[in-house]
Design a protein around this nucleic acid. Structure first.
Lengths: 353, 353
DNA sequence: AGGCTTTTGTCAACCGGTTGCCATAAATTG
DNA sequence: CAATTTATGGCAACCGGTTGACAAAAGCCT
């Protein structure tokens, strides 16, 4: 009978796997084991279970690992354990500056703790969002949803599978990070009241936006407190363009001060009003929300209620890390403060001319 | 002798793995094999090698897969094959709006082809960048470097291991996506010349920036062509703040028109000049680069040389996909066009007052 | 010293796919 | 109809770690 395969004869075996171009197919724990003269499982323990092996062998193994320039193969580790050291972050729109700081905050925190951030976009669609979330669930240890568009129930379902943290929305039974709008709003409204305004308009965001509802509530409450009249206007979309479109409604409303669901709306609104000859803030005061990148590029620079977005991202990542490593404490909601950033677009109303 | 472990007796085995909270530990090809009455390897083939199994069994297996709601375990697949269906994208600064559109462009293209985008930030540091790149290499099929800060040689070394595409820089032997600055710059300079300007300043970006060098070359060439004088000024950093700081140099230079390495510099510069009482564009024209988000928020809105950043990101992802699936064609450099976006910050010079 | 507990390292099974090789069944051919 | 090619499915090894069970070695006690 002819031996079908050559028994280990060849001195230098050709790896020929992976790395189509280079050589050196990355050291494994088996290589380390050989160098250190121990069993692979001992290497594994030395490298992941602190204190499970004696200091002596630990050192031996670490030296060998360093020498071979070893790095764990994440897939090989993920396969039996399910751990991937990876977070998913889903945002509605990657180019919406509101999310920039959230992304950065989450990324920084994750990287600090040796986690990798994977990003996905939902294109403002609840179904795309759910699809992306489902896809991600397979490969991440936990998921952060920033201003999610999907149902509470869908979120809870996801959360049953792996840790999920929600930003900018409160979902029962799921840990959340939400800016507390009240402080910032009341500062804003008091400032407007102090400057002689009496009627305030709020330009709302998307109907399904949880945060838009909270902001409107906050505005109503603060106006009541300051004895101002509050009216609500609807926007078509929460963008600069949407802000332009709502300008006629704003003028028709007779309000002398406007708060908008977000800065984008405020900027568009301001552009349109200025184009129509109105002077900000002499004729009308404008206040946005979020303090996004570019909010101070306008003339006058935009007064806005700042949410600490970076903090939100970092907080969400921290919450996730706690959930994964923590002592199983219950899902807490993390509240962060908002504050008024007083710039030039709001101020004293000039006597009507 | 006592049997140490119970032989397969229990009818319903407790999986008890993964998914600490839910049940249902995800169907595997083995489950499918059982349902379809075939061998797991056949399932594997049916699902990944088109045409390797008969149409009949194919159908059988697909039905079973659908019924069990099967999805491949990416790690199990990655382990033997090395394929991960994942791209890495490294940017210098996640919150720099220049990268937003690049990120989105890459993300969209990747998602469309069933790839996932993993993001990392280099914090503008060459070593952080290299570290991040190295880390990523282990887990991605290919890497996109946007405006990398590291050496050409480091990039080439990475590129030997896995496909790498570079955006906003040209590296010999590595596929690149670069905006061709000439068209946009010559449009800009011609426009300035037509408006009576004679001396043009260029505010440069970081010394190690490849793109900054190209832009300065382009400005010089275009000025020569239009018989304008060009002077170069240095900035401390390519941000709004850096723009403010360079304002005094700009005034001292005597130039009546300024092009800046990027929009951020232009915006900062404009703010500072306006604060000093200068009127844009009556006293001085300002032209930025990139047409970032917010470039039109300023008053006057910023004239800028637009790079199709989204296209760059998408192009890079496409290049990567070609490299991975393609017929091994050589590394090509993809050039995209720039164009002048004429807004209010540039225009006719008013007779000096 | 003998018996008992605690460390420490080894063995082997396992995670869930992929793939080379082979045997068999089916199709093609002379 | 036999011979040969081709299509199809099965077997088993493998990717590179992790981990429960266990035995050898070491430490502790009386």
């Amino acid at each position: 009978m002819t031996e079908p395969k050559m028994p280990e004869v060849a001195a230098t075996r050709v790896p020929a796997k992976k790395h189509a171009r280079d050589g050196k197919p990355n050291a494994t724990i088996y290589d380390i084991a050989k160098v250190a003269g121990v069993n692979p499982s001992t290497v594994s323990r030395a490298l992941s279970k602190p204190g499970r092996v004696s200091a002596k062998t630990q050192k031996l193994i670490e030296d060998a690992a360093a020498e071979l320039n070893y790095q764990v193969n994440p897939f090989a580790r993920a396969l039996p354990t399910g751990r991937t050291n990876t977070f998913g972050l889903i945002v509605a729109d990657i180019t919406n500056p509101t999310f920039f700081d959230i992304i950065r905050g989450a990324e920084t925190t994750a990287t600090l703790r040796d986690y990798t951030l994977v990003l996905a976009e939902s294109a403002e669609s609840a179904v795309t969002e759910l699809t992306a979330a489902r896809r991600m669930m397979a490969t991440v240890d936990g998921l952060i949803l920033a201003s999610p568009r999907m149902d509470d129930d869908d979120i809870r379902t996801l959360a049953r599978d792996k840790p999920v943290v929600v930003i900018n929305r409160e979902v029962d039974g799921v840990p959340c990070v939400v800016p507390d709008v009240n402080k910032g709003i009341s500062e804003a409204v008091r400032s407007l009241a102090a400057n002689g305004h009496q009627k305030v308009a709020f330009v709302a965001g998307p109907p399904q936006s949880w945060m838009s509802a909270r902001r409107w509530e906050g505005v109503q409450a603060a106006c009541e407190w300051s004895r101002l009249e509050a009216v609500r206007l609807e926007s078509t979309k929460p963008t600069v363009d949407g802000g332009r479109q709502v300008a006629r409604d704003v003028r028709a409303s007779g309000a002398t001060a406007v708060l908008t669901y977000n800065d984008l709306l405020a900027i568009g609104l301001m552009q349109e009003l200025q184009a129509a000859g109105m002077v900000v803030p002499d004729h009308i005061s404008i206040v946005g929300f979020d303090d996004i990148f570019g909010a101070d590029f306008t003339t006058p620079p935009l007064t806005t209620v700042r949410s600490p977005l970076g903090e939100c991202g970092a907080g969400a990542a921290t919450l996730l890390l706690d959930l994964l490593h923590g002592t199983g404490e219950p899902a807490a909601t993390l509240r962060v403060e908002t504050e008024l950033v007083l710039r030039g677009s709001s101020g004293r109303l000039l006597p009507a001319g």
